[in-house]
Amino acid sequence: MTIRVLLADDEPLLRMAFTMVLDAQPDMEAVGEAGDGAEAVLLARRLRPDVVLMDVRMPGTDGIEATGRLVRHCPQTRVLILTTFDLDEYAFAGLRAGASGFLLKNVLPEELLAAIRSVARGDAVVSPRITRRLLENFAHQIPAGGLPEVDERLHRLTPREREVLVEVARGLSNTEIAAGLHLAEATVKTHLGRILTKLELRDRVQAVIFAYENRLVRPA
């Protein structure tokens, strides 16, 4: 199955480079290019791509606003934000707007391609560093004192799945979790998939918030 990708960036040379990388893959196709956020939304509504690679800083409608519009009008299209600037406000604003991932433009081509495939499958692509800093910002919203009512979905997890969920909530990558729990990385991925299914969650970010809301881990 071919993953149809729309590119949104105000730099034509970057769009050309990304198009060449995508079209060289047997399972990907660049279906369109947009120079700003408004054009990206219009093209996405017409072309219905699987994934939009979205720059943040563009003239007119920026990538954050465009992401919010895309999520509302094209719910089947996933957005992967790709930016030059490693700023928390961009990452958090993008995730709040509904983006499925956040990467820097200096990412290796193989990492970008892996991220596109993950997002197309319905996964989230957020680095552990961003997850940790997201939680630092999220922590103040968690009420202190008293034990909250435990979500009944938590009882669906096995003890091992609960362990994996705690490590995910700590912001660890699958590789780090595998090393810490003495598991194969593929086993960690399997556990995470089952966790998301049992808890009826969309992605890793939602799993982290679920764990904090249910006090499986506490903010530092």
Rank of each mutant, 00 (worst) to 15 (best):
E11P: 08
P12F: 05
P12T: 09
M16H: 09
A17D: 02
F18S: 06
F18A: 03
D23W: 13
A24E: 08
Q25K: 08
E29G: 03
A30F: 15
G32Y: 04
E33R: 10
E33M: 12
E33N: 11
D36Q: 10
G37T: 05
A38R: 10
A38H: 09
E39R: 14
E39D: 05
V41D: 01
L42Q: 15
L42P: 01
L43A: 13
L43P: 08
R46S: 15
R48A: 15
R48S: 14
P49G: 03
D50A: 07
V51R: 06
V52E: 07
M54G: 05
D55V: 12
V56S: 09
V56T: 06
V56L: 05
R57Y: 12
R57I: 14
G60D: 12
G60F: 05
D62I: 11
G68W: 09
R69W: 15
V71I: 11
V71H: 14
H73D: 06
C74D: 08
P75M: 09
P75H: 12
R78A: 15
T84F: 10
F85H: 15
L87W: 09
D88P: 12
D88H: 13
Y90R: 00
A91G: 04
F92M: 10
F92S: 08
A93Y: 03
G94T: 05
G94Q: 00
L95V: 07
R96A: 15
R96P: 13
R96Q: 13
R96F: 02
S100P: 03
S100A: 15
S100N: 08
G101S: 05
F102M: 05
F102L: 10
L103H: 02
L104I: 15
N106I: 02
V107H: 12
L108H: 13
E110R: 15
E111M: 07
L112E: 02
L112F: 07
L113A: 10
A114G: 04
A115N: 08
I116Y: 00
S118I: 00
V119F: 03
V126L: 01
I130P: 00
I130G: 01
I130S: 00
T131V: 14
T131H: 12
T131Y: 01
R132V: 12
L134S: 00
E136F: 03
H140L: 13
I142A: 04
P143L: 14
G145H: 01
D151C: 01
L154N: 00
